[in-house]
Computed example of a mutant assay.
Amino acid sequence: MTISREFHPYRSAFIQEKTLAKKELSKSEKDFKWKKRKYDASAIFGDINTHDEFERVSEEKNVFSMVFTNLKDIKEEALFPCEIFDGNEAWIGKDAIGKYKYFTGEPFNEAVAYSIFDLLLCFQGVQGKGYTQQRKFVRDELINLLNVFNGDADWEQKEREKYIENIHILTLFKNQEFQAKYPNLFKKIKSYLYVLEDMLIHGQKFINIEKRNEKNNSIFSMYASQSKVSPASFSNVVKRFKELGFLFAEEKRVTFFDKRIQSECLTNTTFYSFPLYSETFFKEIEESLKHNKGHK
């Protein structure tokens, strides 16, 4: 039976609907029905270069039938018994803006539309703290299931992981044992750790393949007004972390639109980037500081 839009109004799934779906899919008999499978969609997707592009294209294709065994033979726009909510009918089709959704609702009542990512987030085993990390987990899961190689998105993923790891390892300096392990280094950075953490959090928002330097590091700009310190202090913080090797800075000529004269202008802007932090990285800096201290 093909659906009739007249009798099936719908709305997007919000947190309450996602929570209900997650509760239902946690039941063993339903989880068993929703088995995921691998499907080679590389030819269908073509050349994908970024995660954003992958997400966009994956919502423009009917990937529900590709990755879920119980949906592989379901025809688009055809009603079938929903296997999430008992008593509901469901269908797979495009919403008003052309994105594929899994629609589910009681007969003749308003339906709820779940995107492929909405649905994947409802299954057990999703890892990550908070929505951003969990969304990344299911996106990577979908890339793997569909056998889609998305080129430079690998770089983007590694950069995001680098920023997450850097933020994590900086928090270890709150541990006295870690401070005792790198006493000279801790003395140098303890007053400014929070500024460096803020820069990492800020820079993480601008990871984009269009914004990377010749060393293949993500670059971003940040100003004192975006930090919690004065311009003079921000300048000193940047100088200190550059000297230690915690931070790279490079000046570039960039174009910006000046509203006062309604024209594009050139200006010099400082861009920042980061190496990957590790205990080996800290150990090398600590040894260097200890050596320099011994020669004073």
Rank of each mutant, 00 (worst) to 15 (best):
L146S: 03
L200Q: 02
Y272E: 03
S4F: 07
E284W: 06
A111G: 08
I3V: 15
L119F: 11
L120C: 08
A90L: 03
F137E: 08
L289W: 00
K290Q: 14
E106Q: 13
K211R: 14
L193P: 00
E210R: 12
Q226D: 10
K181S: 03
W91K: 05
D140E: 13
L200K: 01
I261Q: 08
I219D: 02
E60C: 13
L120F: 04
D152C: 05
D258P: 01
S42H: 08
E24M: 10
Y114E: 01
N175F: 08
S26C: 07
S58C: 12
F80N: 04
E106R: 14
N166Y: 01
S115A: 05
F7W: 11
F85I: 11
E197W: 01
Y272C: 03
E77M: 11
K181D: 07
L145P: 04
E55M: 15
P107C: 01
M66A: 15
E165D: 12
I169F: 06
K174E: 10
R37C: 09
D47G: 06
I143A: 05
N217H: 15
T104N: 07
S263F: 12
D31F: 15
H51K: 13
N88D: 13
H291M: 14
P275C: 10
F246I: 00
K242A: 00
D95V: 11
M222H: 02
E250L: 09
W155F: 04
E53C: 04
P275E: 09
Q262M: 13
F14R: 14
K259R: 15
P9N: 10
N175E: 12
L71D: 08
I164H: 14
K205I: 07
K211D: 12
R11A: 09
E53Y: 10
I3N: 06
S42C: 04
K293H: 12
R160C: 09
K30L: 13
N217V: 05
K283H: 12
L170A: 00
K293V: 11
L145W: 06
G105P: 03
F220Y: 07
Y114P: 02
L120R: 00
Y277E: 01
K228V: 08
L172I: 07
P183W: 02
Y192F: 04
K174M: 06
D154W: 09
F220Q: 02
E286D: 06
A96C: 09
N109L: 13
S230Q: 02
N268C: 10
F234Q: 00
K188I: 00
F274Q: 03
I201M: 09
E251G: 09
N166W: 01
L121M: 13
Y114I: 00
I15G: 07
S273D: 04
F178C: 09
W34E: 06
F173T: 00
F271D: 07
F103A: 01
T50Q: 06
L276H: 12
L200I: 04
E24S: 08
P81L: 05
L196E: 00
L79H: 05
S273V: 07
F149H: 14
F149Q: 13
K72A: 13
F103T: 03
A78P: 02
V112L: 02
N144C: 08
F14S: 13
R11C: 07
R37H: 09
F117L: 13
F68W: 12
I209N: 06
S230C: 01
E159F: 04
S235A: 12
E55G: 11
Y272K: 05
V237K: 00
V237R: 00
T19L: 14
K190S: 02
L71S: 07
G130A: 05
E24N: 04
F117P: 02
